[in-house]
């Protein structure tokens, strides 16, 4: 119910009731209806803005509309079936799916390469320093997983630290309050934390375990099936985006577009981009294979699934095969 279009919607409704012929028209129009994709404030997803602004979807002959959301609002909208696809992490795709918003991950956009962090207060230099101390994370979310991964690598267990559950948005205040020695947060909240607690530094980041968190374009299974050809075109456009951003010649323009999307200066935005490893199609193909561990989307998703069940995010393991379909990425 867009305000501006209320009257026109009513009018349309009216004519459709009066003229059944128009209904036939609307069905044929349905086929060409734009794919509706929700995206939000994460560098790997803001990257789509380049293709939007450059008109590359039109060039590729695929009608799309991108809708800008707050991250959790975008998953709500997807779960409610109001958009055809949404950008999210592979772990969140499982969480959303378990709650009823099933999806197919048609492609990888990036993996977090340092943008997810465990940040220690001044003086805390490594994961080992956390032993016996309090650490704040948003339980069941990616930073929780990141912390467990870091603890494991350092030869420690979850029980070696005391976890404090807090909203990711509130992490800057959590660390500043001095009640905890470390927090987990992603960008830009991680940067905000370090700004507000000078001397605080990342002690473990997603760069230490590439592939811990993959970001994907998750598509409604029905749409993935019916509009397969269109989705493949979307995947192809992504490759163009990655090239444009990674090419030093065009990068400044790309960063300008992305920075404008979130309303900051390009200088502010550039460092955030560095913490995100955008994946070209060729790179993605190597990751979108069966396998264990963090090097593959299958392995990473399996770990995320186990983590989610272990932390009671949902009750029973998800059928990963229904979420994973590499054929879009591998299509010629």
């Amino acid at each position: 119910m867009n305000v501006k279009h209320i009257s026109s919607t009513l009018k349309t409704l009216f004519t459709r009731l009066i003229l059944p012929a128009a209904a036939a028209l609307s069905i044929s129009a349905h086929a060409a209806q734009p794919l509706k994709i929700g995206y939000s404030d994460w560098p790997g997803w803001v990257a789509w803005q380049v293709a939007i602004d450059k008109g590359w979807f039109k060039e590729a002959g695929v009608p799309v509309t991108f809708e800008w959301f707050d991250y959790s609002a975008s998953m709500d909208a997807f779960a409610a079936g109001k958009i055809d696809a949404v950008t999210m992490t592979n772990g969140d795709a499982l969480v959303t799916g378990a709650a009823g918003g099933k999806s197919v991950m048609v492609m990888l956009t990036d993996y977090s390469n340092g943008n997810d962090m465990i940040i220690g207060k001044p003086g805390v230099r490594s994961i080992k320093d956390l032993k016996g101390k309090k650490v704040a994370v948003e339980m069941g979310f990616v930073e929780h997983l990141l912390l467990l991964n870091g603890l494991k690598k350092a030869g420690m267990k979850e029980s070696d630290v005391t976890l404090v559950n807090a909203k990711t948005n509130e992490m800057p205040q959590m660390l500043a309050s001095g009640d905890v020695v470390a927090i987990g947060a992603w960008q830009p909240i991680a940067g905000q934390t370090m700004k507000s607690v000078p001397g605080a530094r990342p002690i473990y980041t997603s760069a230490d375990e590439p592939g811990l968190i993959y970001d994907v374009l998750a598509v409604n299974p029905a749409s993935a099936k019916q509009r397969r050809a269109d989705w493949i075109k979307v995947v192809k456009v992504w490759d163009r985006v990655v090239k444009y951003i990674n090419d030093p010649k065009t990068q400044p323009d790309a960063v300008k577009i992305m920075a404008a999307r979130v309303g900051v200066s390009p200088e502010t935005y550039l460092p955030l981009l560095k913490g995100t490893r955008l994946l070209s199609l060729d790179e993605a193909k190597k990751i979108y294979v069966k396998g264990d561990g963090f090097k593959t989307l299958y392995g990473s998703s399996k770990i995320a699934d186990e983590f989610n069940v272990a932390n009671d995010v949902y009750k029973s393991p998800q059928d990963l095969d229904s979420y994973l379909d590499a054929s879009f990425t591998n299509a010629k």
Partner: peptide, 16 residues
């Protein structure tokens, strides 16, 4: 919010 989105869509409906 989530309920409103599910019923009224993603644009101005749920906000209103």
């Amino acid at each position: 919010g989530a309920l409103a989105v599910a019923i009224l869509g993603i644009y101005d409906g749920p906000k209103i």
